[in-house]
């Protein structure tokens, strides 16, 4: 079924087009969040791994 308000409405313009903008914005914000945080996780892990390697080389892996 098609969204019915495809004609301009008094005082509001074309509602269906405006709604599509909000829907796309919501999904886009979600993906920016998901991808952005994934990159953050990946980088944090790389930095931590490097730090651990350095610590092991410098101080030895005494356990």
């Amino acid at each position: 079924m098609n969204w019915p308000i495809t004609q301009p409405c008094a005082g509001r313009g074309i509602v269906s087009e405006q709604n599509n903008t909000f829907i796309i914005a919501a999904f886009a914000v979600t993906w920016v969040c998901v991808i952005g945080y994934a990159v953050h996780l990946y980088r944090a892990r790389r930095v931590a791994d490097a730090r651990l390697r350095e610590a092991q080389q410098t101080f030895g892996g005494r356990t």
Partner: peptide
Amino acid sequence: RTAVTEYTADELA
């Protein structure tokens, strides 16, 4: 796991 890695490096030092 990342936090544990950081913690381990700190503890070694």
